[in-house]
Structures are given as structure tokens and as C-alpha cells.
């Protein structure tokens, strides 16, 4: 059964000071079963991030439906849920990872992960042990546990970012170019992490620049060839 179904989705941006409207994407259709991993490829500006951000409601979707099968609410259209419902889903069911670590300043890595767990109303003692487990799991150097992440390297930030998003065991994880600006070694590490997540049954939607990275990792790949591209049918490049 589909965990996420995007139907006839479109998004345009109105830029008032230019008096212009830009169609970022239109006619997007795809669906995603539980435990599946879909990769979206396409050159920059083709609207990959727009799709992901609209699922997470950082962008307001304008046309179409984004039907998500929630644990709490059942089938629900993410394009139309209330703000409070979306906040609930973000806390409990849907995770988002970008290449940028956008977190509360002056908060240590450990606190950031604990906070994610406390939001889910886990008891403080469990949050503490789980946070340490996550920090170990994502191979973050022990001396970084009680440091502020603004001084971390790109790879460290990203691993922390993924740790924060995955410690809650989200049912759906959105990966927005997590590997951009990483060196080859860090990319390999991230790939290992994603493989682990997939093995654990997490459903994933990911955007990546390099097709090699996705090779063998994704169950389906959507290619957004030219910008903006209407995806009339599911364009499967590789079966994983």
C-alpha cells in the first residue's frame, strides 16, 4: 500500500516585487510504498527540492494532492493539513535532512538529539541513552558530543543532521541533496548510513546530484530532464 502518493502536484511562486509568477513544477505524479526508496534526479532548478519542501510543507503546495498514510491520522493530504497537524507529523512521522544543518544556536550535538526525542515525549533518561547510541551509530567523534555544531566539518554536520532526523525513527524520511559538497570518503559513509536506514525499513525520498551515488541504492529513480518537467509517467531508470 502506498505510504505517499503525489498526484497532479504543481507549485508556482509569485514574486511580488518583480510582478512575476514562476511555475516551478507541474503535473508531478508518483507514489511510494512502505520501505521503498525513490531517488529524484535532475539538474539544478528543475524543481527537485520544490517537491520535497512541499511534502514537508516548507513550501505551500498549490495544486494537486500529497496523500500521506499517517499512523495517527490515517490517509491525509499534506497539501491541506492544518499547521498543528503538520507540526505533529514533523515531530513524530516525517523527517527532513538537507545539506545545511539548521538548528538552534548554542545547543550541543547531544542536546539536539535529546531534544528531538523529548519532543516525542520520551522520558529524559531514555532520551539520554538513545542520544548517545545515535551519536555512536553515526560515528560522531566523542569529543564533539558536547560541542556546538557550528564549528563542525561538512561531513560531521551532515551526520549529525541525519542523526537528529532519524533518531525518532520517522516513517518517511526526505533527503534533500544530503551529499552535495561532501568529499568522496564522507559520501561513502553517508551511503552506508542510508543503506542501514533502508535495511531498517525506513521509506525514503531522496534528491541527489550524482547518479552513481544512487546506483543500486534506490528502488526507483525519477528523472526531471528539463526544467520544469511534467512527469507524465513513472520514469524508472534503475531497479534496485
Amino acid at each position: 500500500m502506498a505510504l505517499l502518493e503525489v498526484k497532479n502536484f504543481g507549485k508556482q511562486f509569485t514574486i511580488h516585487h518583480l510582478g512575476k509568477t514562476m511555475q516551478a513544477v507541474e503535473n508531478i505524479h508518483f507514489s511510494l510504498d512502505k520501505g521503498e526508496f525513490i531517488g529524484i534526479v535532475g539538474k539544478s532548478g528543475s524543481g527537485k527540492s520544490t517537491i520535497l519542501k512541499s511534502i514537508y510543507r516548507t513550501y505551500l503546495p498549490d495544486t494537486g494532492n500529497i496523500v500521506y498514510d499517517s499512523n495517527r491520522f490515517g490517509k491525509i493530504d499534506l497539501a491541506k493539513v492544518t499547521e498543528r497537524e503538520m507540526l505533529y507529523l514533523r515531530k513524530h512521522e516525517i523527517g527532513y535532512v538537507s545539506q545545511f544543518l539548521n538548528v538552534m544556536p548554542r545547543t550541543t550535538s547531544r542536546q539536539l538529539i535529546e531534544k528531538a526525542l523529548l519532543e516525542m515525549e520520551e522520558p529524559a533518561t531514555i532520551a539520554k541513552t538513545e542520544a548517545e547510541k545515535a551519536l555512536k551509530h553515526f560515528e560522531l567523534d566523542r569529543k564533539l558530543w558536547d560541542a556546538y555544531p557550528n564549528t563542525f566539518s561538512g561531513g560531521e554536520k551532515l551526520r549529525l543532521n541525519i542523526a537528529i532526523a532519524t533518531v525518532k525513527k520517522p516513517r518517511l524520511l526526505l533527503l534533500d541533496e544530503p551529499t552535495a559538497s561532501l568529499d568522496q570518503q564522507s559520501k561513502v559513509k553517508v551511503r552506508e548510513i542510508i543503506e542501514k536506514l533502508k535495511a531498517d525499513g525506513t521509506t525514503l525520498v531522496g534528491i541527489f546530484h550524482d547518479i552513481e551515488f544512487m546506483d543500486g541504492l534506490c528502488d526507483k529513480v525519477y528523472d526531471m530532464k528539463s526544467s520544469p518537467v511534467p512527469l507524465q509517467e513513472e520514469g524508472v531508470l534503475c531497479e534496485g
Binding site: F13, K53, R57, T58, Y59, L60, E83, M86, L87
Partner: peptide, 10 residues
């Protein structure tokens, strides 16, 4: 009105 990140980004 909206989610804070939506107000900031869209």
C-alpha cells in the same frame, strides 16, 4: 500566517 519555516522560505 503559517509554519515559521514556510513563512521564511515561501
Amino acid at each position: 500566517q503559517g509554519l515559521t519555516d514556510q513563512i521564511m522560505e515561501d
